[in-house]
Write a protein that binds this DNA or RNA. Structure first.
Ligand SMILES: [Zn+2]
Ligand SMILES: [Zn+2]
Ligand SMILES: [Zn+2]
Ligand SMILES: [Zn+2]
Lengths: 181, 181
DNA sequence: AATAGTTATGTTATAATATAACAATATGAA
DNA sequence: TTCATATTGTTATATTATAACATAACTATT
């Protein structure tokens, strides 16, 4: 099997990302509805943040986005309360990690192990494990889905039962490769 | 190509590990001598610790081993000095991380990204990227080396230039699979 | 051997990532 | 409503990793 059988590397292709976002968001909502799992406001917010780009984000980066949003949404009263507390009304890490846990469980986001970062899934609902191409130029991450990773076959051959796999290939995408020295 | 072309999964095979350790240590020394890089006492110590098993260790776990060794090697005088300082004469994290950096650069150890942990390389000097089978039962990690990871070919096909790869397969080894429910 | 340049180690402090534990709130079913 | 459960909020802390600078060890040259 060759790449023809894989879907394309969305992240590295010119595309209408606005549309991309909307489609992925709709798909996510549909999936959770079907599964009867709850895509709550917080979870939705984190998903929206991840959907902003095809670049992975650290949990604390996501947190910063949330807090920026919070601070601009403060009413005069809550702003005063915030000031009285002597610090910005900051949302704390567990909020983000729990939302991420949900998104990972539902297959709406992935964790990039080699970067301790998180990225939106571009194929919500896919069954098989994903593989990632990580560009060091533009920092975008493309998600592939091969179903014949020979290595898995080999693993089986030595009696190893596979639960999950992490495949992360780092380098330069076509665009960034051209400009690289 | 099938596994016959790969070397065996040492970690999952019964073997004389004492011998295994000695061989790997000799190979490491030989490599560094040939390359004219310095396998200093600290670096050697960390390598020795990693060679104790085929299970990956966290940096702070390695640190603990070092500190245990230090404390048992204290002379009466230095022990007194230690006590006077009010704390155990503890070696600090950078020591370990720097030794690990050296070992990773020399290809004498690997980082397991999905566990934030480090493991001795069982093929010091190998050129190609390694792939890992991580058992959730015994926690041992086997190192494979395929040179035809099809994914890399596919990456090239979409214009992606590969610098490095992380391939970590988690599951149960043959032994642990039998006992698992 | 003394000197100077370099590499490695030691030390202190702190950054970055992640989770435990418990309180408060919202949701959904009976 | 009332209870049970799931989610969110909050505080504190654990875990992993690095920055910055001081000291010591090694190397090559005089
Ligand atoms: Zn897009
Ligand atoms: Zn790129
Ligand atoms: Zn061994
Ligand atoms: Zn096992």
């Amino acid at each position: 099997m060759n790449l023809a059988n894989s879907k394309p590397c969305v992240a590295f292709e010119r595309h209408d990302h606005r549309d991309c976002q909307h489609q992925l968001m709709s798909a996510a909502k549909a999936l959770c509805a079907k599964r009867n799992t709850r895509l709550t406001r917080r979870r939705l917010q984190v998903l929206e943040i991840l959907l902003q780009s095809h670049q992975p984000m650290g949990a604390y980066e996501i947190l910063a986005h949330i807090n920026k949003a919070q601070s601009t949404q403060l009413t005069p009263q809550s702003r005063k309360k915030t000031i009285n507390r002597g610090a910005l009304q900051a949302v704390a890490p567990p909020i983000v990690y729990r939302a991420l846990e949900f998104l990972l469980d539902e297959g709406l986001a992935h964790r990039i192990e080699s970067k301790n970062a998180y990225i939106c899934c571009v194929r919500p609902g896919h069954q098989r494990a994903a593989q990632f191409l990580i560009c060091r130029g533009c920092e975008k991450v493309a998600e592939l889905e091969r179903h014949d990773l020979d290595l898995l076959t080999d693993a089986a051959r030595v009696g190893f039962t596979v639960d999950s796999s992490v495949v992360e290939i780092t380098g330069h995408c076509a665009d960034c490769g051209k400009n690289a020295s």
